[in-house]
Design a protein around this nucleic acid. Structure first.
Length: 274
DNA sequence: AATGAAACCTGACAGC
DNA sequence: TGCTGTCAGGTTTCAT
């Protein structure tokens, strides 16, 4: 479900809501599918630790955990969460009904709960020892125009597929790839390596602008994204092409087209995007 | 090495 | 009402 702006919004909400809180106990659902580390590893690492900070790296939530005093001189640990397509990480009161497809619950010393809910089970949880989680690629919000250009040099694949490749940029998904390409005036099918420097500069700027605008509006709620407090975002109201197939382009009135690229539904304006 | 298709899951919705 | 088919914010794996 969530791309960079949604994960950023969730991370900010979680940081505000649970920073400094202590995880008293952890419950994990009976099936191991949504876990990347073993249930034992996760429960063992989380139980009794204080949450120092929650932040976003790419599309991952990173919980920085304070070292446990009982453990002899081991460094800090991290809890890494990927929400997949439909994952939610919610701060809730134990009185609230446990939603269907809840796979993990961390009970906090403050009396609240951290709940991981994920109907499609594409989400992944893991714990790790080091405090240097970097994610697979480069952050789109801080990359320079030069670095950005370098990423796509001599790539034969489409620019759309390249934007979705997390080993290059991490954090851009299907919505923001389509929206950025529209704003930059570039057709999704264009070969990444054949874009001009001017086009790449425009795309670089468009991505930053779209992501920042989306963060400001709390992300895009297309079907079921909500933030850590369970509230929807508003950027879906600003979508210009994504899921607007057949509707008039907001700039030129041409009908928005939908194709499949890299296995993903791809939306663009045939007139505005060259 | 890199590209694309299929697989992994459940749910919502359209059409019959 | 209920069946079938399609689609969905993502990533990994497997075949070319």
């Amino acid at each position: 479900m969530p791309e960079l702006p949604e994960v950023e919004t969730i991370a900010r909400g979680l940081d505000k809501g649970v920073r400094g809180d202590v995880i008293d106990s952890v419950w994990l659902g009976s099936y191991p599918e949504p876990l990347k580390s073993s249930a034992q590893q996760i429960a063992g690492t989380l139980t009794g630790t204080r949450i120092a900070r929650v932040r976003r790296v790419g599309k991952h939530l990173v919980f920085d955990l304070e070292p446990k005093r009982s453990r002899n001189g081991r460094g800090s640990r991290q809890w890494i969460v990927h929400l997949g397509m439909t994952g939610r990480m919610l701060v809730a009161s134990p009185d609230e009904e446990l939603p269907k497809h809840t796979h993990a619950v961390a009970s906090l010393a403050s009396g609240r709960e951290l709940r991981f809910v994920d109907p499609r089970r594409f989400g992944r949880l893991s714990v790790r020892a080091a405090a240097d989680f970097a994610g697979p690629g480069t952050e789109p919000l801080t990359i320079t125009a030069e670095q950005f250009t370098e990423l796509f040099r001599s790539r034969k694949t489409s620019i759309k597929a390249a934007l979705l490749n997390q080993k290059l940029l991490h954090g851009v998904g299907n919505i923001y790839a389509d929206e950025s390409l529209f704003r930059a005036g570039i057709r999704p099918r264009r070969a990444a390596g054949r874009l001009t420097r001017a086009e790449l500069d425009a795309l670089h700027a468009a991505i930053k602008q779209v992501l920042n605008d989306a963060i400001r509006l709390g992300g895009s709620s297309v079907s079921d994204y909500v933030n850590a407090e369970g509230r929807e975002g508003f950027f879906q109201l600003r979508h210009r092409v994504y899921m607007r197939t057949g509707q008039p382009c907001l700039v030129c009135r041409t009908r928005i087209k939908r194709i499949v690229l890299g296995g993903r539904g791809t939306h663009y304006c045939p007139k505005c995007q060259k």
